[in-house]
Amino acid sequence: MGDKRTLGFYVLAAFFGLFVLFLYGPLSAVFILSFQGPNGGLTFPLNGVSLRWFANLFERQAVGDFGASFGRSFALGLMVMAATVTVSLLAGLAFRRRFLGATPLFYLTVASLVIPSIIVSLGIGVLFQQVGWRPAWFSSGYGAHLTWTLPFGVLIMFAVFNRFSPSYEEAARDLGASNWQTFRHVLLPMIAPSLVGVGLFGFTLSYDEFARTLMTSGSSNTLPLEIYGMTTNVTTPVLYALGTVTTVFSFLVILATLGIIMAINRRQARS
């Protein structure tokens, strides 16, 4: 605003700094405590430094089946990501035009966002039970996760297309491009960064989701369910080690996504 920084700026900057500390402070405590010595407990001080609890993670009997549940969550995240990107893009394209039932479908999407997760979980669980299908993470769990990620994807596509000028496509069509060519060579490259963002949302929302998985994952746990189970019966820093590992993994996923988005933008700026 003005050229000189006012007192208000410094007060707000301090407030923002406290907010960031509030966000990251507790996480860093978990990070530090995961290197707790072999005899250390769940709180400070550190009783020496060791990798004991990380090693503990990979001993099967100690914390249940961490590796397998991670594998399931990872696979489910990728499946949800693929479906979220495709279905949201298609729906976003559909909503650019008028069609019968557009408003009810929009409200169904918003409902999907606001209906409490546990109700969705219970509903799908009961549905599978009544139909006689066995619930599993890749069927009922998959659907349950999509009810959470799709509204985000569709709303993001709404925001993208609201800001997208149709004149690019008109220009392409005037030059004789077919519908498919216009989509493939004009529209798709322009919205590619947003699609990568939708993919990130789909993956991380699914990878961390557990209220919706509760009744729908069948007999094998996903990673968040495994961690939730651990909160009640694990009293060693192995819990923090698992927290550190999954958080670092989430960070890597986010960094990779940002890298991809920046690479796309740079390539487009060059051409």
């Binding site: 949201s88 729906a91 039932g101 169904l108 109700i119 969705v120």
Partner: peptide
């Protein structure tokens, strides 16, 4: 056609269960 996947998924995993 473009809206069908969204409608089918939300219909089966949200509307029907509720």
């Amino acid at each position: 056609l473009q809206a069908t996947p969204l409608a089918v998924i939300l219909g089966f995993f949200l509307a029907v269960p509720i």
